[in-house]
Design a protein around this nucleic acid. Structure first.
Lengths: 163, 163
DNA sequence: TATGAAATTTACCATTT
DNA sequence: AAATGGTAAATTTCATA
């Protein structure tokens, strides 16, 4: 159930991960197939949610969100509940919310303009029910973000055909 | 210098962030402009690095990387140095590397298959010069990832025309 | 910077193998 | 599943405003 991808699927994924705006025809040339066949594979990958979507990577600093931070949010939620996390995720500037093992904690990735905006956002965190406290780590420099996901390198099939 | 974007640029960015594979023509229809004008704006946004690229969002679990973790890596580097971070960033499975304030620390986002693969990757971290120790937090569930970056809502210009 | 027209390329769909 | 072929649509360049 995990992945029934063949070599061509992986090639297509690699190309799309590298440049999501590449044309179908260009993909077809790269993989040595007819464009219609490539299109059908892409549609299938989308349908099976191997591809979740396509997005432009925007420069946060150019858009007035030059400050990145990670905040650990401790809550008093029941075990396994994620209501607080979902509420945090709705606040503008919150980019990721992960529920972590260890303490009853969320790890939240933030994009804000400056420390003033950070303070305002953290204040909003405090207003979310069950939030007990927060601990924030400010990012000084980002060495790398959005490294590509390593793709399996298959010689041929991988277990079988695709559905 | 930060952003000389007008309302139409922001509209274009919003559409591309939502679906990077949207056609030029569709963008043009949405913003009420000729496709050629939209194309030129996109090229300019790319040139000015407001748009950094376009990427497919892939499902890590479907690609055999169902385990997400964040690792704090403490190093003995000189202040401001990022060689260790750059080396960490080259290891397959490392998706982000941020240099953080507070301790001499990197915060690293990982995508691995399972705890065995995690152990192997952390062992590689230990082999990087100046790395002193690591502390890893495992993600149980991800409430949200890749929330869109909030875009400025401009009524008209914002300071002036674009370069 | 925007438009509109023209040439090229692409996407899409029905059909065949 | 993949290729083919035909039509509509989109991309891109360029002249012009």
């Amino acid at each position: 159930m995990a992945y029934d991808l063949d070599r061509i699927d992986v090639q297509i994924l690699r190309l799309l991960q590298e440049n999501a705006r590449i044309s179908n025809a260009a993909i077809a040339r790269e993989v040595g197939m007819a464009p219609s066949a490539v299109l059908e594979r892409i549609r299938k990958l989308e349908r099976r949610q191997v591809i979740l979507g396509y997005t432009a990577q925007l420069n946060p600093a150019a858009l007035g969100r030059g400050l990145t931070a990670f905040t650990n949010v401790r809550t008093e939620e029941a075990v396994g509940a994620t209501e607080a996390g979902e509420e945090l995720a709705r606040l503008p500037g919150v980019q990721e919310v992960h529920h972590t093992a260890g303490q009853d904690c969320y790890l939240v990735k933030l994009r804000v303009a400056d420390t003033t905006a950070l303070a305002q956002l953290l204040k909003q965190f405090g207003a979310v029910p069950t939030v007990r406290d927060t601990r924030t780590t400010i990012v000084l420099t980002t060495v790398c973000e959005s490294n590509p996901l390593p793709l399996p390198d298959l010689e041929a099939g991988e277990g079988g055909r695709q559905a």
